[in-house]
Write a protein that binds this DNA or RNA. Structure first.
Length: 212
DNA sequence: CTCTTGATCTTCT
DNA sequence: GAAGATCAAGAGC
């Protein structure tokens, strides 16, 4: 079963049978409930300097729940999340990696979608140079991996999502979505706020629901 | 295949 | 001083 309905029948594992790019998403798209935006980002395409791919895995975070970096109020690191929607929040993870979020809802909501995995479609050669791996499935299957592949660093913190070097294009068609609990957290670990493209070979880990 | 550990920066206790 | 929205390499099965 393809995660996208007709006309494609088989699971999309190469770029040959991807749907095209929809219009560029602007701040109005991100100015909505963070979980709604998270689900609609599955199948969208994210590019940085024309390098990137189709979003296949994301997680939603909101100030009201304790797993969010914004939960304890604004700090120098999380300031961007407290601002208006449609901007990038980039943070340092475990002292080593960069990870990118899309700020959603409205000023003060401090809600964001963590981009966790892409299916590479644009600029594969540039990604392989940065990542020093050849397996396509390892280029962008994880938040730290995709940031490295796309050249994302703290330089992009606070950047607009609808102006160079960043672009996010709407999906064409509605894919089949799977949900599960978020990965690598201990607080609010039962909230099913992780969204993925069904049967994608490019997600960072299998999907799991709370309890099991 | 699964499990463990090191790397190394920011924030919080 | 400890924990954390991670990843890669090595050990063991």
């Amino acid at each position: 079963m393809s995660p996208f309905p007709a006309p494609v029948q088989r699971t999309r594992r190469s770029t040959a049978d991807l749907p095209g790019l929809g219009p560029a998403l602007t701040s109005a798209f991100f100015a909505r409930d963070v979980r709604q935006v998270a689900g609609e980002l599955i199948g969208a395409t994210m590019l940085v300097n024309d390098v990137g791919g189709m979003i296949v895995e994301v997680e939603a975070y909101h100030q009201s729940e304790p797993a969010a970096h914004s939960h304890r109020g604004p700090t120098p690191r999380t300031m961007v999340m407290f601002g208006p929607p449609g901007f990038a929040y980039v943070y340092r993870s475990y002292g080593i990696h960069w990870c990118i979020n899309f700020v959603c809802e409205q000023e003060g909501s401090a809600a964001a979608v963590l981009i966790r995995a892409l299916q590479p479609t644009h600029g594969l050669a540039a990604m392989r140079r940065r990542r020093r791996v050849t397996d396509e499935r390892l280029l962008c299957s994880g938040p730290g991996r995709l940031a490295e592949a796309l050249g994302i660093t703290d330089r992009h913190n606070g950047s607009r999502l609808d102006a160079p070097p960043i672009a996010v294009h709407a999906r064409l068609g509605v894919p089949e979505i799977v949900t599960g609990v978020r990965i690598g957290i201990t607080k609010a670990a039962d909230l099913p706020w992780r969204y993925g493209l069904k049967e994608s070979a490019f997600v960072s880990k299998p999907f799991r629901t709370a309890g099991a």
